[in-house]
Design a protein around this nucleic acid. Structure first.
Lengths: 166, 166
DNA sequence: TCATATTGGGCAATTATATTGCATTAAATA
DNA sequence: TATTTAATGCAATATAATTGCCCAATATGA
């Protein structure tokens, strides 16, 4: 069964785009504030937001926390290679990785030297070491692991570029 | 001038942790819904949320959009090496990269083969090609570029692991 | 153990905000 | 230009956030 409306490109006019831009920056704007910013009155603004939600263009809103203040000072980028490129290997890997709360992102990627790219958040290097040894390297099929550590976050955003819509 | 309270670890009790867990999953919960989920009445719940905001633990709330429905089907992971590791080179690079809306993440990282890791979102491969040629490789000091493309998003979250707070 | 202080929670009134129906206006179509 | 269609704004209503005040629980110190 193939999903039918996943790729449906919606027609987004200038006002919709403004709404999305605002909400990407600040999802806790009140509808009234949002309406003012996009040059609409409250009710049509709210209706547009609801429509964007129902269309699945607005997926959800999330609260962003400060990792340092929560004692999570270390972010690691891990590139992982698999020994065999079979669906079973991949499925098992993904299932296990999805159960680790330290993993913020996990992408299957193209490239010769790696199959997966992970972004992992932990308190410090000790915990990272434990995580790598007790979690990642224990997964069947993991053959190569390369770790990099984030020294500075130049950009850390969830916003999509909306300039291509026009 | 060194920031003083950036690292201040807050004491987060069980209820605060529940609040943060809920809001990380769903930032558009009403205060009443949140209060019920964490076992509090509305007013102390709201007071706790405000306190967490003032402490900077809650940074902001953002709306997540569906990239496919917005015609942004290609996500690339780019590893970039710089010719010289001088503060001027890095500053200039970061300033220019920060101006590209396609760049969702840009981290200065450890590692022998790369200095920066970027996550970039564009409509398709043509646009990616243009972006690489006209934007990235034109930045002074960029000496090596390696691109990977996201085939599948296994995990794509903004949630931090709160299990270490114990 | 008991008295006291301090912190946090709950209730209820108030204020602000979201939501809905309906008339109106603007835009699109022929 | 007449007609249809879609979207907007206003106003009334329903929900939710916010605040002040009192009470309960926990911590503190004799």
């Amino acid at each position: 069964m193939i999903a039918t409306n996943d790729k449906a490109l919606a027609r987004i006019d200038k006002i919709d785009r403004k709404i999305l831009e605002q909400l990407q920056k600040n999802g806790s704007l009140t509808n009234q504030q949002l309406a003012e910013k996009v040059g609409l009155s409250a009710s049509p603004c709210l209706r547009r937001v609801r429509t964007l939600e129902e269309a699945g263009i607005i997926v959800r809103t999330v609260t962003i926390l400060d990792h340092k203040k929560l004692g999570l000072a270390l972010t690691a980028i891990i590139l992982i290679g698999m020994d065999r490129h079979t669906p079973e290997r991949f499925a098992a890997f993904e299932e296990q990785v999805a159960a680790f709360p330290e993993v913020q992102e996990c992408y299957l990627i193209t490239g010769q030297s790696a199959d997966y790219m992970l972004k992992v958040v932990v308190p410090d290097m000790d915990h990272y070491h434990q995580f790598l040894l007790n979690r990642i390297t224990r997964i069947q099929g993991v053959s190569g692991v390369h770790s990099s550590f984030v020294l500075r976050r130049v950009i850390d955003s969830t916003a999509l570029p909306l300039g291509y819509l026009s």
